[in-house]
């Protein structure tokens, strides 16, 4: 009895498969989301014949840029095992504040940083409640959601038009991305940048790995000497900044700010993140998955408008898809724990 056999089979095909599972099991839900997206694309193309056109696919990013940005921030928070219900309201509030400051004649170079800072401050407030006062994330972010919604109405009870050329430029510019009618707007570029930065942060920095560590086991992460407190606060700040940025993008998208903007967006965001393969218990998931989740969400919306059906079907379909995903996740988890 000299040692425990810990041999890793290498050459055989089953060994390679096992190796994949032992290393990359957390990517499986993301691949599943990708599969659904592809099936949807192919199915919609077969049914409509004109679905997979450069214009439609390009608009997918354009129409959902704000959601994509929110989803990246939400992914950080959910990975720590938390949740941020405030993102929709913070997006509305920063949008309202930005629009009113612009109306008052402040330059865009001041207004946008202010919007991001306000978002960061709201996130920080949530993080402080969660981290220092042991308030459940659900409740803390709920309070922030109420506060932000109230503040949005305090700025103005009615919508404010935005005429600042720089903001409108974000949306109206169509950059030809590839031959044909592929196009991308600066808002879309922003969203993609946020995804890339988010993915790099999570994969290649101690901050990112600590986020995963907290979601895996907060107590252990602390014992390992990782900066748990700072990281958790920062996760909510990231989400807040993303909400602020989404405020900019959404204002540009609609050309106006309205205090009721983004009601229910927090649910769409959570749904997109979960469909993208992130576990709500934290510790497992990817920004790239969240992006796929957002694209699935956007495609459903597009398909339903292609069908000319009522938009209430969007929510029903998203609900059903969410259900499908969590049931599948549940089965995967049950399988692996039975091993």
């Amino acid at each position: 009895m000299t040692g425990i056999p810990v041999t890793v089979e290498r050459a055989s095909a089953s060994g390679a498969l096992r190796r994949f599972f032992s290393r990359r099991a957390s990517w499986i839900p993301v691949l599943a989301a990708l599969a659904i997206l592809i099936v949807m694309f192919i199915g919609a193309q077969a049914y409509f014949g004109n679905f997979l056109t450069p214009r439609v696919i390009s608009s997918l990013l354009l129409d959902n840029a704000y959601l994509l940005i929110l989803a990246v921030g939400m992914t950080f928070v959910i990975l720590t095992g938390g949740i941020d219900l405030s993102v929709g309201a913070v997006m509305a509030f920063t949008g309202m504040l930005g629009a009113s400051l612009l109306r008052d004649g402040l330059p865009v170079g001041v207004v946008v940083p202010v919007m991001l800072l306000i978002g960061a401050a709201m996130g920080l407030a949530v993080g402080i409640m969660v981290q220092y006062f042991d308030v459940q994330p659900f409740i803390a972010s709920l309070a922030a959601m109420f506060a932000a919604r109230g503040l949005a109405f305090m700025v103005s009870l009615s919508s404010i038009r935005v005429e600042d050329p720089a903001i409108l430029w974000l949306q109206s510019t169509r950059i030809q991305a590839a031959p044909g009618s592929w196009f991308i707007t600066p808002t879309g570029i922003l969203a993609i940048l946020v995804v890339i930065v988010g993915a790099l942060l999570l994969a290649y920095t101690r901050f990112g790995r600590t986020i995963y560590a907290i979601g895996g086991n907060e107590q252990s992460a602390r014992l390992m000497g990782l900066p748990v407190v700072r990281t958790k606060l920062l996760a909510y700040v990231v989400s807040g900044v993303c909400a602020g940025l989404a405020g900019v993008v959404f204002t540009a998208y609609t050309g106006a700010s309205y205090p009721l903007n983004g009601i229910g967006t927090e649910l769409d965001t959570i749904a997109a993140v979960v469909i993208g393969g992130t576990l709500l218990t934290g510790g497992s998931g990817y920004v790239l998955g969240s992006m796929i989740g957002v694209l699935v969400y956007g495609s459903i919306k597009t398909v339903i408008s292609f069908l000319g059906a009522e938009q209430s079907w969007t929510r029903i379909t998203i609900g059903a898809l969410l259900l499908l995903f969590v049931v599948v996740q549940r089965i995967i988890v049950a399988r692996s724990s039975r091993r």
């Binding site: 959570i270 209430s312 609900g319 549940r330």
Partner: peptide, 18 residues
């Protein structure tokens, strides 16, 4: 089924109004 309550009820929260 054993789904987390937040998610399980989120499904109906999303779909119910529809």
């Amino acid at each position: 089924v054993g789904i987390q309550p937040i998610i399980a009820t989120l499904v109906l929260m999303l779909a119910g109004r529809g």
